[in-house]
């Protein structure tokens, strides 16, 4: 199908985009790789799109010893290819490579995916797993939201209608960091049935384990993370069944098992890597 009629504006700056958002029924268009299909299917019929592709500040990268900040406008392919400097010991590039297909990755953006907040999308789960912080800007300036508070549920974020996501702050993983990422898909590039993430950074004291693609906000597994930190991968895997059962009690047993398997494989990948 074709999209319903809409007005199109291109913004040169975040301030200009935010001003247009404040006028109502306007959606931010970044890569449009999720919004475009929804509009073609007439599931979304915004009156107006404000295109932020040409906003230079959305492609800033900065880092200090502890934290890196990535502009929201980087494409998945640029992260995959290392065009964006890597502060994650390869985690971000590896995840980017598994997002949809190359033609989609060439246009879809980090920030667009996060603002869309599909529970099965890779970055939504990644930023919560890494306990990142999202920087959003509205008429009153910028505010920073912990990733776990940003993702409220399926397709629902803490973004107000007149705000847009401008950057993502993630911990800068040390050289001794290890990580594992496992995505269960029926077909390459399809939406994930389950996502498992495990990250261990001895230098920063960071240990995180997360079950994702749960059709709701991602679910951190702090008990498994504690085991991973204190007793190693095998001990973390040993508590997975119980912790996933406790935290995802409303999922059918087979659905829970998918998450357990994805997380277990992520921890195994961490142990091997």
């Amino acid at each position: 199908m074709k999209a319903a009629a809409f007005d199109y504006r291109s913004a040169e700056s975040v301030a200009q985009a935010v001003a247009l958002l404040a006028e109502g029924d306007t959606r931010v268009l970044a890569g449009g790789q999720s919004l475009g299909p929804s509009m073609n299917l007439r599931l979304a019929r915004p009156q107006r799109l404000v295109d932020v592709k040409r906003v230079a500040s959305l492609r800033a990268v900065a880092a200090d010893d502890a934290v890196c900040s990535l502009g929201a406008g980087w494409t998945h392919a640029e992260i995959e290819d290392g065009v964006v400097p890597d502060f994650s010991c390869g985690l971000m590039a590896r995840i980017a490579q598994g997002i949809a297909y190359r033609a989609v990755r060439n246009r879809g953006t980090l920030g667009g995916s996060l603002a869309h907040a599909d529970p099965a999308a890779d970055w939504v789960n990644t930023v919560v797993a890494l306990a990142g912080t999202l920087v959003v800007e509205g008429p009153g300036g910028q505010r920073r939201i912990a990733a776990a508070d940003f993702v409220r549920g399926a397709f629902t974020t803490a973004l107000q209608g007149n705000e847009m996501l401008v950057a993502v702050e993630l911990p800068r993983l040390g050289q001794k960091s290890r990580w594992g990422y496992h995505k269960l898909c029926r077909k390459t590039g399809e939406f994930a049935k389950a996502i498992g993430i495990a990250v261990l950074d001895p230098g920063r004291g960071l240990a995180r384990v997360l079950a994702g693609a749960v059709e709701a906000a991602p679910v951190p597994l702090p008990l498994a993370a504690k085991q991973l930190w204190e007793a190693g991968p095998a001990a973390a895997i040993a508590v997975l069944d119980d912790e996933v059962a406790a935290r995802l009690a409303d999922l059918a047993p087979a659905e829970r098992m998918l998450r357990v398997v994805a997380v277990r494989r992520a921890i195994e990948a961490l142990a091997e890597g």
Partner: peptide, 9 residues
């Protein structure tokens, strides 16, 4: 960059 807010689960 501003310091990271470590969000506890």
């Amino acid at each position: 960059a501003a310091p990271l807010v470590e969000a506890m689960p």
